[in-house]
Write a protein that binds this DNA or RNA. Structure first.
Lengths: 211, 211
DNA sequence: TTTCGTCTCAGACTTAAGGCGGAGAGCATG
DNA sequence: CATGCTCTCCGCCTTAAGTCTGAGACGAAA
C-alpha cells in the first residue's frame, strides 16, 4: 500500500481526487489538508510515502510547504506537484524546492494515479509541457559565455533579430558609437567574431523565446 | 458500432490487432486484407467506417492503396495509417494521399482503439513524433521567399552558421566573388538587408535542422 | 573617499560586406 | 539553334562593421 496525503485548498478538487484515488486498491489516502502550513505539519506527523500538493493556495502556498517538508531530515516522502499552471515562475521554484514530480490538472485521473505509483518506486513524472521548459532552461544554464551586463543582453537580443547598429541605437536611445562598444564587448565575451555569429548564438540558445 | 477493416500483410500483426479490437464492444471488424490492392477492393465493396492501414506491404503499398480508396467518390471512410516508420519519405506521402490519422506501432492497443473511435467521430489523431514533423514542414511551406537555387541554399545555410564569405568560398571551393554574388541574390530573394538577417531567417525557419 | 563596474561617447583606423554592371560556360528545353 | 537558368567570376564603389585607445558620468560598495 502506498500512503498518500493530498494537500489542496480547493475542496471540490481535493475531494474529487481523493474519491478517485480511493478506488485504487494499492493507494491509501491517510490524510488531507487545505493549506500549505497545515499540510506540512500533517506530513511531518504521519510520514506518508507520497504527497499530492497544489501550488496555488490561500494560506501558505505549495512552494513554501514543499520547502518546509523537504527540510525535515527524516523525510523520505515524494512530493508531486499538481497544479493548473506551468509558467516559469511556478515551475522552477517548485522544482528547486524539492518537488519530485510535476503534473497538470489537465492530466487524467489515471495519469495521476500512475504518477503516484511511480513516485513511490522512485521514478519521477514530469508533464510534457513542463519537461519542455526544463529542457530549454537546462540548455541555458549550460551557456559557456561570460556574464553579459543587462545592457549588453538588450543589445545582443537586438542583434539576434537582425538589427543594424543604427537601428539598435535608435531603439535604445543611445548613439551608434555606444552600440558599437557594446557589440564589441559582446563579441569578445561570447567569443565570436562578428554579429552574424552572435545572432546565430542567440537562436541556438533560444534567448529570444523568453524575452 | 464502428465498422473496421484491417489491412496489413504481416499475419501476426494483423491477427493480433484484430484479436484485441474484437474485445472492444463498440468495434466491429468486418474485414481484413493482406495487401494494398486486395484491401482497396475490399474497402470499396463493404464500405467500412474506418480502415487501419499498414504502410509497408509486399504487394502494393499502403500509400497507393490509400490513394486508391480516396479516389472513390462514395468513400467517406477514415483511413488510419499504422506503421513503424515515421521518416519524412513515408509520413508526408501518406498524409497527402488522404490518410486521416497516423499512428505508430509503438502505440498501445488502447491508443489505437481510441484513434479508431475518434476517427469515426471525425477527430484525427497524429502521433506526437509525426506531429512534430508536420509542424516543421508546415512552417517551411509557409516560407514567403522566392525559390532559392540549390547553390544559394547551400550558401544560405553557411551564412546561417555564421560563416564569412571567405570561409564559405573555401568550403564550397569557389571564389569569394562568387560567394558575394550568391549572398547578394539570396538577400534580395529573402527580402532582407544583410547576412545577419539572413542568418536569423535560417534559424526562425529551422532550415538547419534538416540539412 | 576611493574604487569598481557599467553605460555612455569620440576619433581614427582597417576590413568585410554588399550593390551594380558585365560576362563567359554549361545545360536543358522548346 | 535560340532561349533561359544556373554557376562562375571580375572591377569599382560605398558603407556598415569592428578594433583600439581614451574618457566622462554615475551609483554601489568597500
Amino acid at each position: 500500500m502506498i500512503r498518500v496525503v493530498v494537500i489542496d485548498d480547493h475542496d471540490v478538487v481535493r475531494r474529487g481526487v481523493i474519491a478517485y484515488l480511493d478506488t485504487e486498491e494499492d493507494l491509501d489516502i491517510i490524510g488531507e489538508a487545505s493549506s500549505g502550513h497545515e499540510g506540512a505539519a500533517l506530513v511531518k506527523e504521519i510520514q506518508p510515502d507520497v504527497v499530492l500538493m497544489d501550488l496555488m493556495m490561500e494560506n501558505g502556498d505549495g512552494i513554501e510547504a514543499t520547502k518546509e517538508i523537504m527540510k525535515t531530515e527524516s523525510c523520505n516522502c515524494k512530493i508531486i506537484i499538481l497544479t493548473s499552471y506551468y509558467d516559469d515562475e511556478k515551475v522552477f521554484p517548485a522544482l528547486e524546492a524539492g518537488a519530485f514530480s510535476y503534473m497538470l490538472k489537465t492530466s487524467s485521473a489515471d495519469q495521476i494515479a500512475d504518477a503516484i505509483r511511480k513516485a513511490a518506486m522512485g521514478e519521477n513524472v514530469i508533464e510534457s509541457k513542463v519537461a519542455t521548459k526544463m529542457m530549454t532552461r537546462f540548455q541555458r544554464e549550460k551557456l559557456p559565455h561570460e556574464e553579459l551586463t543587462n545592457r549588453e543582453m538588450e543589445v545582443l537580443l537586438c542583434v539576434g533579430q537582425g538589427m543594424t547598429n543604427q537601428e539598435i541605437g535608435e531603439k535604445l536611445y543611445i548613439g551608434i558609437k555606444t552600440v558599437k562598444t557594446h557589440v564589441s564587448n559582446i563579441l569578445s565575451k561570447l567569443d565570436v567574431h562578428d554579429r552574424t555569429q552572435a545572432a546565430v548564438y542567440v537562436h541556438r540558445n533560444q534567448l529570444l523565446n523568453h524575452k
